[in-house]
Each structure stands twice: as structure tokens, then as C-alpha cells.
């Protein structure tokens, strides 16, 4: 950056705008954003115009590139390209919904525990620990098996096993921030507990929460794929995880029906991780100046 642009006057930059500026200068993060937006575009296009992924269209296990099938066909002769296009939507939707749910529960519980402290904190943290020590995948499997597997139950199951982390993080932030002087100052102008929690403390606790939320999306996507792989997904919905699960027995005869969906999951989660990492750097510039 040359001296001229450095000394150019800058208008009052909000903390968010400042973070965005840092983020934009971070190449891996921008790469992650590009990959993620591409995947998202493909998935949205696919769910609108992808066609029927269950339709048998050609000879089973046609290798990629042959007979006009870019990604080949699976063990039943279904077009993998269609599956990849259509199968991303449930994976991403469930991942996002589960992340939103876990963040909602986690932030609420963590905020109440951290703000009020005392017996409220004790009670809520014991509940949190109860959920935290449950083997997450196993618990999600039990929930999905108990209630018939549909996208809603899967998202709920994943959300319910993932919130403790967020709760602990939120609690830690609230414990730290509630002691700061501007919280006392807010109280001194007559703000009540609710206002102080959601309007004063939460906005200041957001940066680490946003980072963690992003990473939560990645983990939730992996979870969904894992459940589908184990055959616990919604059998009427094509998803990347289900494609891997259904084709895994034939991996020695045909590598492509498991590899391409796997790659799709990898790229999505990887891009989300890059974004989360970039956000972390953007919100904590000090961490980068090692």
C-alpha cells in the first residue's frame, strides 16, 4: 500500500466495516468465500433445475466422462451429476438450520448463565454439561431413530447436540463483559437486565460468536452427511451423505460414486472453515501479528 492511499481520509468506520476490510485482505478467507458461494450457487441451481436424482438413466457404474455422463452413474445407473446437483440442498439446509438452532439455544443459555451467575449459572451449566458429555453422533442417531428421519428431525437432532459449545463460549464472554465499566454505565442510565444483556453485552460478544457460528455450520454439514451415510437420513431425499452411504459397498468396483459427493462435502466444509478462520483474524487483528 503506498503512502497516498494510507493517508487518505477515512470516514468513521464501524467495527463491522473495519472487520470486513480486514477480511477482504485475507486471501484464504476470500478463496473460501468464493468456493462457498460457488457451491451455494450450484446447489440452488440444482434444487431448482436438477431433475430427478432417483431416476435410472443408463447402465450402472458408467465411469465419469463416458457416454456423456460427466461424473458417471452409480450402482443403480442413476446419474451422479444430478445427484450432486440436487443432493447438496438438504445437506446445506440441514447444516444451516442445525447451526441456527444450536446458536439460538447456546446463546440464550450461555447469556442467562453468564449474566445472572449464582444458582442460575450453576443449574444451566450442569444442564449444558449433561448435553456435552453425551456422545454427539450417537445421541443424534437415537433422536433420528426415535422420530422418523425427516429433514426437520435431523436438523433438530444435530442442533440439540451442538449447542453446549456455543453456550460455554457465550457464558465466558458475558462473564467477562458484564464486569466492564460501560455495563455499569448502562445501568446508571436506568437500563434493565434484558436491555443490558441483549443490547449492551451481546453486541460486544458477537465477534467470537460469529466465528464459532460459522464453524458450527461446517460441523453440522459433516453431521448431516454422517447420519445419511449411516442410512439414518431421510430416504426420500437425495443427499451427498446418502450417495456415499449407498455406494460404499461398491467402492472397489467404482471409485467415482463415493469420491465426488465426498469431494463436494469436503469443499463445502473446507470453504466454511476458511471463512471462519478469516473472520477470526478480522475480528482479532492482534492474533495475526505473531
Amino acid at each position: 500500500m503506498n503512502e497516498l492511499s494510507r493517508s487518505a481520509p477515512e470516514r468513521a468506520a464501524s467495527p463491522a466495516a473495519e472487520a470486513w476490510r480486514m477480511f477482504r485482505r485475507n486471501r484464504p478467507a476470500m478463496l473460501g468465500t468464493a468456493i462457498f458461494l460457488t457451491m451455494l450457487g450450484v446447489v440452488i441451481y440444482g434444487s431448482l433445475f436438477g431433475g430427478d436424482p432417483f431416476e435410472i438413466v443408463w447402465a450402472p457404474q458408467t465411469p465419469p466422462g463416458e457416454d456423456g455422463f460427466v461424473f458417471g452413474t452409480d450402482y443403480l445407473g442413476r446419474n451422479l451429476a444430478t445427484g450432486l446437483l440436487v443432493g447438496g440442498a438438504p445437506t446445506m439446509a440441514v447444516g444451516a438450520a442445525a447451526a441456527v438452532l444450536s446458536i439460538f439455544i447456546g446463546v440464550t443459555i450461555g447469556a442467562l448463565a453468564g449474566y445472572y451467575g449464582g444458582w442460575v449459572d450453576n443449574l444451566l451449566m450442569r444442564i449444558t454439561e449433561f448435553f456435552q458429555v453425551l456422545p454427539a453422533l450417537l445421541f443424534a442417531m437415537v433422536l433420528v431413530t426415535l422420530f422418523s428421519p425427516s429433514l426437520v428431525t435431523i436438523a433438530t437432532a444435530i442442533g440439540v447436540v451442538m449447542w453446549p459449545q456455543t453456550a460455554r463460549l457465550t457464558r465466558a464472554e458475558f462473564l467477562k463483559i458484564r464486569e466492564l465499566e460501560y455495563v455499569t454505565a448502562a445501568r446508571a442510565i436506568g437500563a434493565g437486565n434484558g436491555r443490558i444483556m441483549w443490547r449492551v453485552i451481546l453486541p460486544n460478544a458477537l465477534p467470537p460468536l460469529i466465528v464459532s457460528a460459522t464453524l458450527t455450520v461446517g460441523v453440522a454439514i459433516l453431521f448431516e452427511a454422517g447420519l445419511s451415510f449411516l442410512g439414518l437420513g431421510d430416504p426420500n431425499t437425495m443427499s451427498w451423505g446418502m450417495m456415499i452411504g449407498a455406494n460404499r459397498e461398491y467402492i472397489l468396483d467404482a471409485w467415482w460414486p463415493v469420491t465426488f459427493p465426498g469431494l463436494a462435502i469436503f469443499l463445502t466444509v473446507f470453504s466454511v472453515s476458511l471463512i471462519g478462520d478469516g473472520l477470526n483474524d478480522a475480528f482479532n487483528p492482534k492474533l495475526r501479528e505473531r
Partner: peptide
């Protein structure tokens, strides 16, 4: 608080919400 009693704090650096 705030209406009948106002308060000014010691540390103007930290008593405003950033």
C-alpha cells in the same frame, strides 16, 4: 437512575460502549 441521578465515571475510555 439516569432521570433524577446522573453519573459520570472515572474511565471515559471504558465507560462508553465501543
Amino acid at each position: 437512575r439516569g432521570r433524577d441521578i446522573g453519573m459520570i465515571f472515572q474511565e471515559p475510555m471504558t465507560s462508553l460502549n465501543p
